[in-house]
Write a protein that binds this DNA or RNA. Structure first.
Length: 534
RNA sequence: GGCCGGUUCGUCUAUCGGCUAGGACAUCUCCCUUUCACGGAGGAAAGACGGGUUCGAUUCCCGUACCGGCUACCA
């Protein structure tokens, strides 16, 4: 496959070369004929927040829409930031959301290994190749020296402007360099950024974005510990894993000229994936990108699932434990910055796969809106079949120590209460009383207006109910209203106390429906019990 | 500070030169409902600012403002 790289102009301006490279539209089309492969590349430094999850989602949707592969590669090149359990947590989140990778550390694949720490050797070769080609150099400056520089020189950058006064293979003689390399002095390999060239990236979301290479510093490619930095590792791995489209957060845009240059030097621009820089998810209140601290501060989850930092023991809340359905979570995330152009808002994963297109991703960052997230969850609970919800509700009730002894009853209950449940955890309050008499009864909402006549009404009600042969809600209501009519008080005067007796508080579905489901014996028992408290 | 990106109701967004600027969440009013919801009807609410281009700009171009990102041997 050959891809035309258009050299737009290459002229001498003040002695400097200005070159603009742009992939032509044809090359874009041609690259589409390859098998589409996308990768999500998290670093295992902690929990996965919704920004990361959305990046996963968009990667996954684009890959599946194009019948391609979705790969998860672990970017663990910073050994100082490694966090125990983070990697397993990431895969657990993906599993919960139903976004299973085709290839990864746990799924295997023909491009193994999928952990960068295990590919350490290959990066070094490429870094050294760059030195041979004059595109990179060894730098021997110590961390302390660099810190000192930054302190004394305002806005210090290790770049074309300053590299000649630093300690590196460009300023040292070959002999000195060799001597240092052979000694135990530590060194890094830095890219030698060209001067005053224009590099353009054709972003699938933003269109053409240009950078002047003079503004970009000589990024470290290979660290003193022999590990590559992100910059070298992405390029090498995206090439060796045959990645065709690379989606990542917008925060990577400024370093993209480094990546493009590396592609040009190492593997050829014609093999470079198509880039898409996704907009960021912002704090709901003020400024900046959403961080895990905002969740605690504002009272909503920020991670997909609960995450406890093994070092600090600090818990960050997750959507799963808060009572979100993965379908709703995914749906919400997808619509944060993307829409299909119609007014449809509720999408299943399959629908998202078939309608997703990266061009329709909004350019601007989006503020996180927890109210809207809850609305999606509510919609999903409402539209779901009771039988499908059943195991999940059972689990949530079980956690609240409510024992479900009758599966058929549970189905009926779910059908009756699901419209009132925004979060999954709402099922506890809305349905516990079907399975056990309420532990606490809100007497205070009844007591102030309680009187002899009411006392008598409920005694008579127990008598009438016990005589009923059919135990159906309409029958129960009829008996109730007829008895109430005889008292010459409004039926409503008795309705609230009745509800309190059956459910313990001012919530739940229609009272007579509740009475029907819990049965004659239990209904009478609960009336009797509450009467004793009054 | 420098570089890059962004800017439509409070929030998420539609609009790819013709707009009485549409939808959703939230909010408000009413109906349904003697709890709370669901449901139904309606209301209020937006093109940052200034210049161009054009018969006509929310839409295209430039500038300003504001917001955000990056500026590590972190990703």
């Amino acid at each position: 496959m050959r891809i035309v790289i258009k050299r737009l102009h290459n002229n001498q301006i003040n002695g400097h070369t200005t070159t603009i490279y742009l992939l032509s539209p044809n090359s874009y089309l041609r690259s589409m004929s390859k098998k589409v492969r996308l990768r999500f590349a998290p670093s295992p430094t902690g929990g996965l927040h919704i920004g990361g999850m959305r990046t996963v989602l968009f990667n996954y949707l684009f890959a599946k829409h194009n019948k391609g592969d979705f790969i998860v590669r672990i970017e663990d090149t910073d050994q100082n930031r490694f966090v125990e359990g983070a990697e397993a947590y990431i895969f657990e989140c993906l599993k919960w959301c139903g976004l299973e990778p085709d290839e990864s550390v746990v799924h295997g694949g023909k491009y193994e290994p999928y952990r960068q720490s295990e590919r350490k050797e290959m990066y070094k070769q490429y870094a050294e190749q760059l030195i041979v080609d004059g595109k990179a150099y060894y730098a021997f400056d110590t961390t302390e020296e660099l810190e000192e520089k930054r302190k004394t020189v305002p806005n210090f950058q290790y770049s074309h402007a300053s590299r000649s006064e630093m300690k590196n293979s460009l300023t040292l003689s070959d002999d000195e360099t060799k001597k240092l390399l052979n000694s135990d002095a530590s060194y890094v390999i830095r890219i030698k950024m060209p001067e005053n060239e224009t590099i353009s990236i054709n972003d699938m979301i933003r269109g053409e974005v240009s950078f002047n290479t003079s503004q970009v510093d000589d990024k470290v490619l290979l660290k003193a510990d022999g590990m590559p930095t992100y910059h070298l590792a992405v390029v090498v791995d995206d090439y060796s894993m045959q990645i065709t489209h690379a989606f990542r957060g917008e925060e990577w845009l400024p370093s993209s000229p480094v990546h493009i240059l590396l592609w040009q030097y190492l593997f050829g621009l014609e093999n470079m994936p198509q880039w898409a820089h996704l907009p960021l998810i912002l704090k709901p209140d003020g400024k900046g990108k959403l961080s895990k601290r905002d969740g605690d501060r504002l009272g909503f989850p920020v991670f997909a699932m609960n995450w406890t930092d093994p070092k600090t023991n600090e818990l960050t809340h997750g959507f799963r434990e808060r009572g979100f359905l993965p379908e709703a979570f995914i749906n919400f995330l997808a619509l944060l910055g993307w829409n299909d152009g119609t007014e449809q808002e509720i999408f299943s994963l399959d629908e998202l796969i078939s309608t997703f297109s990266i061009e329709r991703v909004h350019k601007a960052g989006a503020k996180f809106d927890y109210e809207k997230a809850k609305w999606f969850n509510h919609e999903w609970i409402k539209k779901s079949l009771a039988s499908w919800l059943q195991p999940l509700v059972k689990e949530v009730l079980h956690k609240a120590t409510v024992f479900v002894y009758d599966e058929d009853l549970l189905i009926k209950v779910i059908e009756m209460v699901k419209d009132r449940c925004v979060l999954f955890t709402d099922f506890v309050q809305q349905s516990s009383f079907f399975f056990a008499a309420p532990k606490e009864i809100d007497i205070s909402s009844v007591k102030p207006k309680w009187n002899e006549r009411k006392q008598q009404f409920f005694s008579e009600l127990m008598r009438d109910y016990s005589l009923l042969e059919t135990w159906k809600h309409d029958e129960l209501e009829k008996t109730f209203t007829e008895l109430a009519a005889a008292t010459r008080m409004k039926p409503g005067e008795f309705l609230l106390p009745f509800r309190i007796m059956l459910v313990g508080g001012k919530f739940g579905p229609h009272v007579f429906n509740i009475a029907e489901l819990i049965g004659k014996k239990e209904t009478i028992n609960r009336i009797k019990h509450t009467l004793q408290l009054l």
